[in-house]
């Protein structure tokens, strides 16, 4: 098969194909149209096919060959995996519960352990900052103690903002609760700041993607025109 196709699958053809496909997708800007949908369908098909190949090859074939030294190690995961496929048929769905239980258990443990040791502890530790300026080396441009204070305040208020609700009108609110509500509102503003940064960065990221494509289009157009003798 490869030998059969090799002579056709040249880089030049590839460039042309890629160029056309890119334009097809960009046609969406003019409005939803069948060409775009065609490209989209193609993407889904190729993407999934490629994913299947990679997973199948790299995971199942290789890993299982590693494990195949001991069939006792190889068979159970295969079995579990196949049982999982029972989920495709509602009538047999329950059969797959074992696999799901297993993988969820593993995943939960990894999530908990990772979250605890990888995020919770270090991040909390990082938030325990000294507010004493004397603890920081003197820097001309910044005020580390103030920064630390803002960080502590911001983190706490943000956390509190998740756990307060606006009191219904007329409801009595004790002083402690009032303080928490205030802190929560403040936390909300911190979240706003981080969302603003998020939005800006998101924009930046997507623009970069567009730049990449425009780069490609221009280069491809240039090359193609050269081939056609017009360049």
């Amino acid at each position: 098969m490869e030998a059969l196709l090799a002579p056709f699958l040249t880089e030049s053809l590839g460039l042309l194909v890629a160029f056309v496909l890119t334009l097809l997708v960009f046609s969406y800007l003019l409005g939803d149209n069948p060409l775009f949908r065609l490209a989209q369908a193609l993407f889904v098909g190729v993407g999934i096919g490629y994913g299947i190949i990679v997973v199948f090859h790299y995971v199942l074939m290789r890993r299982l060959s590693l494990l195949s030294a001991n069939w006792l190690l190889t068979v159970p995961p295969l079995l579990l995996g196949l049982l999982l496929w029972a989920k495709l048929w509602p009538a047999w769905s329950k059969v797959g519960n074992v696999s799901v239980a297993f993988i969820l258990g593993a995943g939960a443990a990894l999530a908990i352990g990772g979250a605890l040791f990888g995020t919770l502890v270090p991040q909390v530790r990082a938030t325990v900052l000294s507010l004493d300026p004397a603890d920081y080396p003197a820097t001309p441009d910044s005020n580390p103690a103030l920064d630390a204070g803002i960080i502590v305040l911001g983190t706490l208020c943000t956390l509190l903002s998740f756990h307060f609700r606006t009191p219904a009108p007329g409801q009595r609110v004790g002083p402690g609760a009032a303080l928490i509500h205030f802190a929560g509102r403040l936390g909300r503003y911190f979240i706003m700041i981080s969302f603003g940064a998020l939005f800006a960065n998101m924009v930046m990221s997507r623009i970069s993607l567009l730049l990449g494509r425009i780069d490609f289009l221009l280069d491809a157009a240039d090359t193609l025109l050269t081939w056609l003798g017009l360049g």
């Binding site: 890119t22 969406y28 193609l42 190729v46 090859h57 997507r206 993607l209 567009l210």
Partner: peptide, 29 residues
């Protein structure tokens, strides 16, 4: 997966399609 055909498909079909689809986001943003 190492074959030329698949790699060609990846490079000239999958990558342009996927990358362009996501670059549309820039406009929507």
């Amino acid at each position: 997966p190492q074959s030329l055909a698949l790699q060609w498909t990846f490079k000239w079909v999958l990558v342009p399609l996927q990358a362009t689809l996501f670059s549309l986001m820039a406009f929507f943003v």
